[in-house]
C-alpha cells in the first residue's frame, strides 16, 4: 500500500481548466480551480448541479484530460501521461465509488472486488477480496451477482472494491445518491470507518449536508470555480 506521511501534500491542483467540445461548441467546465489537499484529509465537495464537481473528480482520477493547469499527486504530475500510464497510476493510487455503483454485472460480488487486485498483480487477490467482503459484512453474498443484490449491498461491494488495493486517495461521487436515508447513513459510516482505518485521503462529492459535515473540509464549487473553502 502506498501511503503518505501525515500532512504530506497528497493532491495539488493548480489553475485547472477543463474545456469540452461538443456539436454546440466548446463548453468551459472548470475555470481555474486550485486546491491543496493533505494526506488523510476528508474533503466534502458541494455545489449545484453542473458546477463541475464530478468533472473535477474525473480529472483527479485521470479519467478526463485537463485543458490547462497542473495536477500533482504526491508531488508527481499526472499530466502528459498516456492512457495506459494513467491506468497504472489509478491502479496504485486511486479508489473510486460512484452513485450508480458501476459493478460488472456479469461478475459475482467477490469477483468484482478482486478485479483491481488482479489488475495490480497483487498475489492471492481472492483471499484479500474475501477479507474486504467480510469488512463490509457481505461474506454470505460472495457468489451473488449485482442483479441479485439491493442498492445498499451493491454500494457496499463498490466500497469494498474501492478500498481493496488500499489506495492513498479515494474519490466518491455522490455515494449515497441512489440510496435511502438509512442505507445512505450506513454507507457513510462504512466509508469513514474504512477511511479512518487506512488513513485514506478522501474527496466526496455530495448533496447531503450531513455527509459533507462529517468531512474535515468543505469546498464549494460554483460555475466551475471554487466559491468557498472552509474547515
Amino acid at each position: 500500500m502506498k501511503t503518505f506521511a501525515p500532512n504530506q501534500l497528497a493532491l495539488n491542483l493548480n489553475n485547472i481548466h477543463l474545456e469540452l467540445n461538443s456539436l454546440a461548441g466548446s463548453v468551459q467546465i472548470l475555470k481555474g480551480i486550485s486546491m491543496k489537499i493533505h494526506a488523510g484529509e476528508t474533503i466534502g465537495l458541494i455545489g449545484a448541479s453542473g458546477s463541475g464537481k464530478t468533472s473535477l473528480l474525473m480529472v483527479i482520477a485521470g479519467l478526463e484530460a485537463i485543458s490547462k493547469g497542473l495536477i500533482e499527486i504526491n508531488g508527481k504530475s499526472i499530466l502528459n501521461k498516456n492512457e495506459d500510464q494513467l491506468a497504472l497510476f489509478r491502479r496504485h493510487n486511486i479508489g473510486i465509488i460512484f452513485q450508480n455503483f458501476h459493478l460488472v454485472p456479469t461478475m459475482t460480488a467477490i469477483e468484482n472486488i478482486a478485479l483491481p487486485l488482479e489488475f495490480s498483480g497483487i498475489r492471492q487477490p481472492f483471499k484479500i477480496a474475501a477479507e474486504q467482503l467480510d469488512l463490509v459484512g457481505l461474506s454470505a453474498r460472495a457468489q451473488h451477482y449485482p442483479g441479485q443484490l439491493s442498492g445498499g449491498e451493491q454500494q457496499r461491494i463498490a466500497v469494498a472494491r474501492a478500498f481493496s488495493t488500499s489506495p492513498p486517495i479515494l474519490l466518491a461521487d455522490e455515494p449515497t445518491g441512489s440510496l435511502d436515508k438509512i442505507t445512505g447513513n450506513e454507507i457513510t459510516d462504512l466509508l469513514f470507518n474504512l477511511q479512518n482505518k487506512y488513513k485514506t485521503t478522501m474527496i466526496i462529492v455530495t448533496h447531503s449536508p450531513e455527509l459533507a459535515s462529517r468531512c474535515k473540509r468543505i469546498i464549494s464549487l460554483e460555475n466551475g470555480k471554487v466559491s468557498t473553502s472552509n474547515v
Partner: peptide, 19 residues
C-alpha cells in the same frame, strides 16, 4: 454495449489497453 461498459470499469480500475 456490454463490453464497452465492462471495459470502462476495467480502465477505471487500472487495466491497461493491452490487458
Amino acid at each position: 454495449q456490454r463490453r464497452l461498459y465492462e471495459s470502462v470499469i476495467f480502465k477505471m480500475l487500472g487495466a491497461t489497453r493491452p490487458q
